[in-house]
Structure formats: structure tokens, C-alpha cells
Simulated scan of single mutants.
Amino acid sequence: MELVVYLAGQIHDDWREQLKQLAEQKGLPLVFKGPQEDHDRSDEIGEAIKGTQPSSIYRDHTASEFNNLRTRIWMNKADVVIAQFGEKYRQWNSAMDASIALATGKPLILIRPESLVHPLKELAQRAQCVVETPEQALEALAYVFE
């Protein structure tokens, strides 16, 4: 059995790559999907498809259409969602993706540092499990295969 894992959350560090490498080392049958990690591509996709927009507001709106399409497709195909919340960046996309996972009945593994226990308490109560590191999230998935 192979699981499709949607990796939601921050795109400003290499947590996804670390998780993928660890899964490969452990020989876990996981396929990883997630948001567009190339920030420029994500910001420019609307204009790449629809052409130059009249302002930055329309540019952002148009890009979000295609980024939301990508997210919706991969979230629907996912067997489980891992949402990473970090210390440094505002995590609007993480919260949105975690909420979508819960609303669509997808199992959710929430990664968040101790400093975010209070602001994420309601979301944490709805997740299947809450961990502090990507490695712990992967151990949770490894347990599924035991």
C-alpha cells in the first residue's frame, strides 16, 4: 500500500526535503505532494496563464486561482495531510490547508512548536495527532505500516 501525503505549510525552509529523504531512508511507501515551492513561479503563474494583469492586486488574485486549483486537486488525492507551522513566518496557508483537510475528512498531522500551542489549540484538538518536528510526523506515518 502506498500513501499520498500532502505537505502543507511554510515554503521558506527545507522541511519537505528533509521529510522526503527520511522517508526514503526508512523505505516508507509514501508519495509526497504539496504547494508550489518555487515562490516566484507561484507568484507569477496567473500572469503566465492569463497574461499581464492591471495591478499587483489582480496579479495576486489571478495567481491564487491557479495555486488554489493545485492545492484542491492534490488535497483531494491525498490520504493524509501534514501541516507544518513554524516560528518565523505567518502561516495563513498552513491554517487554510489544515482546515480544508479537516473539512474534507482527511487525516491531519499537525507540526507546531511549543510556542504555538495556544494560537493553534482549536486546530490541534481536531488533528489526528500533534507533533513538534517533521521527524515525529514521519514516525507517526511509519507506525501506520507496522
Rank of each mutant, 00 (worst) to 15 (best):
Q18S: 10
L19K: 04
K20H: 05
Q21Y: 09
Q21T: 14
A23Q: 08
A23S: 15
E24W: 09
Q25T: 08
Q25C: 03
L28T: 07
L28K: 05
P29K: 11
L30P: 03
V31H: 13
K33A: 14
K33I: 14
Q36N: 12
H39M: 15
D40N: 07
R41D: 12
R41L: 15
D43I: 07
E44T: 09
I45L: 12
G46Q: 02
G46P: 03
G46S: 05
E47H: 05
E47P: 04
E47S: 11
I49Q: 10
G51W: 07
Q53G: 03
P54K: 06
P54T: 08
S56E: 12
S56A: 13
I57F: 14
R59N: 10
R59I: 06
D60A: 14
E65G: 00
N67D: 12
N68A: 14
N68H: 10
L69W: 09
L69T: 10
R70Y: 07
R70D: 11
R70L: 15
T71H: 03
R72K: 07
W74H: 11
N76E: 14
N76S: 15
K77A: 14
A78V: 08
A78T: 05
A78F: 06
D79W: 06
D79F: 08
V80D: 03
V80K: 03
V80W: 05
V81Y: 00
I82M: 06
I82V: 15
A83D: 00
Q84H: 09
Q84R: 07
F85W: 04
F85E: 01
F85V: 02
G86R: 02
G86P: 00
E87H: 11
E87D: 14
Y89W: 13
Q91L: 04
Q91A: 08
Q91M: 06
Q91W: 00
W92G: 01
W92V: 05
S94K: 02
S94M: 05
A95D: 00
A95P: 01
A95G: 07
M96G: 01
M96N: 00
S99Y: 00
S99Q: 05
S99K: 00
I100Q: 01
I100P: 00
I100T: 04
I100A: 02
L102T: 04
L102I: 15
G105W: 09
G105E: 10
G105T: 11
K106Q: 06
K106V: 06
I109Y: 04
L110T: 02
I111N: 01
I111M: 04
I111A: 01
R112P: 01
R112I: 02
P113V: 11
S115R: 11
S115F: 07
V117G: 06
V117P: 00
H118S: 12
P119W: 05
P119I: 05
L120M: 08
L120C: 05
E122W: 15
E122L: 15
L123V: 04
L123A: 02
Q125Y: 09
A127H: 03
Q128P: 00
C129H: 03
V130T: 14
V130E: 08
E132T: 14
T133L: 08
T133P: 04
P134W: 11
E135V: 09
E135F: 06
Q136C: 05
Q136E: 15
A137R: 03
A137F: 05
A137Y: 03
L138F: 09
L138H: 04
E139V: 09
A140V: 15
L141P: 01
L141C: 06
L141S: 03
A142F: 06
A142K: 13
Y143C: 09
